[in-house]
Amino acid sequence: MSAVAPLTFQPGEIVLNKYEIIRPLGSGQFGDVFHVVNRNLSRESALKLIRVANPVEHRAVVEAQAQSLCGHDHVVKVLTADVFDGAVLIEMEYLEGGSLADRLHQEFVPVIEIIGYLKQVLFALEHAHNRGIVHRDVKPGNIMLTGGIAKLSDFGTVIHPASGVRVTDLFYRPHASPEAFNNREFSAASDVFAAGMTLLRAVNNMTGWDAVLSNAAWPALVKEGKLANLMGYADHMPAKLKRIIKKAINPVVADRYPTATSLRQEARAASTCSTLDPLERQRMGLHL
C-alpha cells in the first residue's frame, strides 16, 4: 500500500473495497470530487479526496461539522469520512443537478431562479452562523442543485472564529471581504459578502470568471472590496436587486447586511412581483 494517496481515481476503480468510481465531478484547490457508488449500501454518492497534512485530525473535524450542520435541508449531507493513504475521503450526498457554476456554464439562468437558490443557501448559512461557524468558501461552485433545491456544500474551509478552530488557513480569496482578506476577520458578515459576490456572478451569468481572475489587478481590488467594479452589473439586473447586491458587498462591515437572514429577507422582497415593474418582471424571468 502506498504511503501517499494517489493523485486521482479512475472510473471503474474500487476504493476501500467500498466505493466504485463512476466519473470525476470536479477538481479544486483542496481536492477532487468523484461520483461513486457505495457498494455496501447500493447508493450513489459524491466522494471527495482531500490530501492534508494531518488526515486523522481533519477527519475528526469533518465528523464534528457533520454532526453540527447536517440534517439541515440546505446543507449537503456528509455521510462518512475515512482516512485513506494519507488523505481524507469524505462521502457526501450526490445531487444530480451539479453546481450552480455548472449550470451557469451550460445556460442562461433566470434571475428569479438564482434568487430562489440563494435564499435557500442563506438559510444554510444562518444555520451555520448560529453554531458559530463561518463558511469562507461561498461561491457558485459550492451551491449544489437538485431540481429547484439548492444546498450549500464544502465546509472544508470553515472556521469557528470564537475558538479559532479550523483545518486550513486557506479560504476563497476572490469572494473575501476586505476585513477577511486583510485582517483575517471572519464573521457572518464576511460570509454575507461572499454570498453577495456569488449573487452578482450568478445574476451576471458569468461564465467568464476566469477572465476576471486572470486580470492582475484582482487581488488589489479584493483588498479594497472593489472586485465588483471589474465585474460590472448586467443590463438585465433590476435596480432593486442591484441595490441589494451593493449593500451585501459593501466594503464597510457596518454598512453591509449583518446576517444571512437580513440579506435573505431583502432578496425575497426583490423577487416579489408586486415590487417590480413589467420590464423588471421580464428581466427576472417572471410571467407578466
Binding site: D73, G116, Q120, F123, E126, H127, Q265, R268, A269, C273
Partner: peptide, 21 residues
C-alpha cells in the same frame, strides 16, 4: 414577511426553514 403568491411548496419550505431558524 413572506409572499402569499409563491407556490405552496416554496411557501412550505420557507416556513419550515424560518420556524427552525
Amino acid at each position: 414577511r413572506f409572499d402569499v403568491d409563491q407556490p405552496k411548496p416554496e411557501m412550505a419550505n420557507f416556513f419550515k426553514q424560518t420556524f427552525n431558524e
